[in-house]
Design a protein around this nucleic acid. Structure first.
Lengths: 210, 210
DNA sequence: TGACAAAACGAACGATCGTTTTATTGTTGG
DNA sequence: CCAACAATAAAACGATCGTTCGTTTTGTCA
């Protein structure tokens, strides 16, 4: 019977590999992530590393999954501690922008990068990135609906429309920061979201800080 | 003395190559654009094609330049026929979104794709894409300033801020369309820009159709 | 201690990459 | 007519890619 607590070494090195992989993928893309370079960076042999995944596509998917988990930990988990409604909505926007600005991944959000890299290449990798992107947008839409239900946003607020806009502004800040190295992009996206929310906040409700 | 009218064959096949290259680049990225595949697609030999550019980087730059010229022709030239001010501003936004939706390039705007692909790879290609992206944003900012000067937008309108937002919404529509195949993204970006402009239009000025 | 399985290794595979070299065209100007 | 030239081709270069193979190390349990 295998030990229940840990697979001892295998799962651990797999974790080490993926930590290096997400950094490489954020800078060079999921295709630029090469097994040889990744092996060299982790001190493993190509074959030894390869055996952990079985194919490059599986490595790419595992890398994306690692990123998704990290985003959940950095963005969604803390943001969902805010009470349902406008505060939670603002918290998700704020946390995602902070995540993109934090340089946790040196080349920006790898999922955002992959969604651009693979949008013209049908397959499981594109499907997974599309799923991640849709998840963020749908979450935003749901939070907006909840803020409306709580009476904090006016009935004229269109959840899908606003979620689309906030999503575009978040990705825009991530991209502008990577391309121009200008952190002002985050402030501008924050301001845009604030201004847009202010136009729909019901009278008597204060906008949480962003 | 070289013939003034045409370099006979060389420049023509170079043009043919680049027409194929922009399509490939829009779908597979500027790195995915391989000389072997491009040679096969154009019926040339690898060496014959290669001789036209001298290096892959030069091919990538020439491809981007071809795209930039096409954007100028499809977006800026027609949009600048509109009178200076709000109409011209709206025309640029409208034309850019129409360009992204038109599938002139099957994989979306190659410059937008390259800006994401190369933002982590310093060099001439990144520099050129950054220049193109900055040009669009600065043009938008200038048109907003002109609309303010014409009294069509209120003094509270921040040109750089609004230009940043419109740019993000344009890129967002391009990306969402490529990833999800959903043309509704263009309508949502149009609506977002309209709503944002409406908030700043001076009393008595009508918003041009978008 | 001996058996067994997981993990990692070194070496090689065929394919493709960008690039270089050498040679062969077809056109053009003196 | 021939020299000069631009354009293309064929073949090969070394490098790197993802992947496979067989072997060896490592660790655990009976």
């Amino acid at each position: 019977m295998p030990a229940a607590v840990s697979s001892s070494n295998g799962a651990l090195t797999r974790e080490t590999i993926l930590q290096e992989a997400v950094q490489m993928a954020s800078e060079l893309g999921l295709e630029g992530l090469s097994i040889g370079r990744l092996a060299e960076a982790t001190g493993l042999s190509k074959a030894g590393l390869f055996a952990h995944f079985g194919s490059k596509e599986e490595l790419q998917l595992a890398t994306l999954k690692t990123v998704r988990d990290r985003v959940a930990m950095e963005v969604f988990v803390p943001a969902f501690k805010a009470p349902r409604g406008l505060k939670r909505l603002v918290a998700v926007c704020d946390r995602w922008l902070a995540y993109a600005e934090s340089e946790i991944f040196r080349g920006g959000c790898p999922i955002a990068a992959a969604s651009s890299e693979f949008d013209g290449r049908p397959g499981p990798v594109k499907d997974y990135t599309a799923e991640c992107m849709a998840e963020l947008r749908q979450t935003l839409a749901r939070l907006i609906r909840e803020a409306k239900a709580a009476g904090e946003l006016s009935k004229e607020a269109d959840p899908e429309q606003l979620a689309y806009e906030f999503h575009a502004l978040a990705l825009g800040a991530n991209g502008a920061f990577q391309l121009f190295g200008d952190r002002a992009a985050f402030a501008m996206s924050r301001r845009a979201i604030k201004d847009r929310l202010r136009a729909f906040t019901a009278p008597g409700t204060r906008l949480p800080p962003l």
